[in-house]
Design a protein around this nucleic acid. Sequence first.
DNA 1: GGGGGCACTTACCAACTGGTGTGTACCCCA
DNA 2: TGGGGTACACACCAGTTGGTAAGTGCCCCC
Lengths: 124, 124
Amino acid sequence: MPGRRGPYICGIDAALDVVSGKWKGLVLWELHAHGTRRFAELRRALPGVSEKMLTQHLRQMEEDGLIHRKVYAEVPPKVEYSLTQAGAALNEALRPLGDWGRERLRQNGLAVEGPPPPKDPTTA
Amino acid sequence: MPGRRGPYICGIDAALDVVSGKWKGLVLWELHAHGTRRFAELRRALPGVSEKMLTQHLRQMEEDGLIHRKVYAEVPPKVEYSLTQAGAALNEALRPLGDWGRERLRQNGLAVEGPPPPKDPTTA
DNA sequence: GGGGGCACTTACCAACTGGTGTGTACCCCA
DNA sequence: TGGGGTACACACCAGTTGGTAAGTGCCCCC
């Protein structure tokens, strides 16, 4: 997934380049809400994601320094994903955008799909 | 360009859906920085954009209620684009993201392309 | 021994994104 | 008369994104 990877004209498109992708925002959200998640947990949390896309996005986000991937050398494979500092900062930066998006959904009479997440730190 | 247009899982992906597109962030930035721009001004401001893509993005952003399109019934065609209230709010919401992106570029030793914009309200 | 889970990988394919190139209708300037 | 500008529309094409389906190796449970 080479995508653009620059050159960029301003910070906005540098940031957008990094979060663009059908599931990246959701992965960030999930990791932010729960702290640490395993692969299968993320898959279940993202309705409709294929395993291929999830690994692809996860790998790229790792490459971009947004998430940390910890592999346990156990017999049933176990991998834990968590946000790096940069990822957490990105999530903070994404918060106003999320607010805007929710306000927009509200005004258009559209509701978010599925049940609201049980834990939602900082009302992100 | 039907894209997703929902259903969305959280505000983040609703917002990202609206700003995703190679030039949308830049258009928002340009309009934010200058207030009102004509088609050809935008084209010149976005190095490398094709006319097709610009109209396409502009149309969709208008449909999404982000920008306002004012057509003057003059003989050499004249169209002016400006941000709507929603577009301006989106831009505000995008600011922290832009900060994050610039910080990221700085840390990676990458500089933004081209000369910095002459006027830059709110250091966006 | 069958079925399921874990965390992937690979191959193939359809859809969408974005680029190029052309045409339009009218104008101004030289 | 030629060239350039304005604001597009249209057709065609390549590349990227994302989906589907299958396979992998090892485990546990019944």
